[in-house]
Amino acid sequence: MNSMSRFFEMGGYAAFVWPAYAITFAAIVLNILWARRSLARSREEARRRLAARGEGA
């Protein structure tokens, strides 16, 4: 078990290694969510435009 705790210590650099990995992982997840949301929003706008044109045309 102690190899796990030794792993997490990162040779004493844990305070720097893990925040670095956390911020990068956050960047990856944020990009995924952000991209999907912007796609969904664009589809919704397109649907609304079509509906509006539906009555308009």
Binding site: E9, M10, G11, G12, Y13, F16, V17, A20, Y21, I23, T24, A27
Partner: peptide
């Protein structure tokens, strides 16, 4: 030289 601290390169260099 940098011990385990160098492992940050695996996220810093790609970013």
């Amino acid at each position: 030289q940098q011990g385990d601290g160098f492992r940050i390169i695996y996220v810093h260099a790609p970013s």
